[in-house]
């Protein structure tokens, strides 16, 4: 029960922080760090897959509601939740993940977390930005936006590990 209330609280905080603070941070005019992915990134390793998927769906829906973009963030975040186990197993250390540990800098080190975050954010942003333009025209200019925004989001997420979620 405690875990559920804590996660609902965290969910609400992440969405509000994204919409009220991060959406007002605009580097270079049109780049926004999407920090709300943290919620999916930091879920414990052994979380059942369907819970990750449903959380991804609700998280995306929550962001969409505030950004007036029905479906876009939802689709991208559900995709992110789906590929998470594959990315985790891709990056798994030789003996697998230990019990009682979480996907955080504190347990698996800076490089591991950076790789994990970059891959995850890249998947999400690829889906998000191409869904937004919904065409393959200007393929390269969209790609450059994906890459720049991914770097921005990933570095914000990694930084947050040192200030907010220290343990």
């Amino acid at each position: 029960m405690y875990i559920i209330t804590r996660n609902i609280f965290r969910f609400v905080m992440v969405v509000l922080f994204q919409v009220l603070v991060m959406d007002n941070v605009m580097l270079n005019g049109y780049m926004v760090p999407y920090v709300y992915l943290l919620f999916i990134l930091l879920m414990p390793f052994e979380t059942p897959r369907w819970i990750v998927l449903i959380s991804g769906f609700l998280l995306g829906l929550g962001i969409d509601l505030f950004e007036h973009t029905p479906g876009m963030h939802t689709a991208a975040t559900v995709l992110l939740a789906f590929v998470r186990p594959y990315i985790l197993s891709l990056l798994a250390p030789r003996d697998g993940y230990e019990l009682e540990t979480f996907p955080r800098v504190h347990f698996y080190g800076f490089t591991w977390f950076l790789k994990y975050t970059l891959l995850m954010v890249l998947v999400h942003h690829l889906a998000l930005f191409y869904l937004e333009v919904f065409q393959l025209q200007n393929f390269l200019s969209t790609l450059s936006r994906v890459i720049l925004s991914s770097i921005l989001s990933a570095s914000t997420i990694v930084l947050s590990q040192f200030f907010v979620f220290r343990k």
Binding site: D64, P70, T74, A75, V78
Partner: peptide, 11 residues
């Protein structure tokens, strides 16, 4: 879930 999201987008 993806289909629901895409329907939302399409509509």
């Amino acid at each position: 879930l993806e289909i629901v999201a895409l329907i939302l987008m399409a509509q």
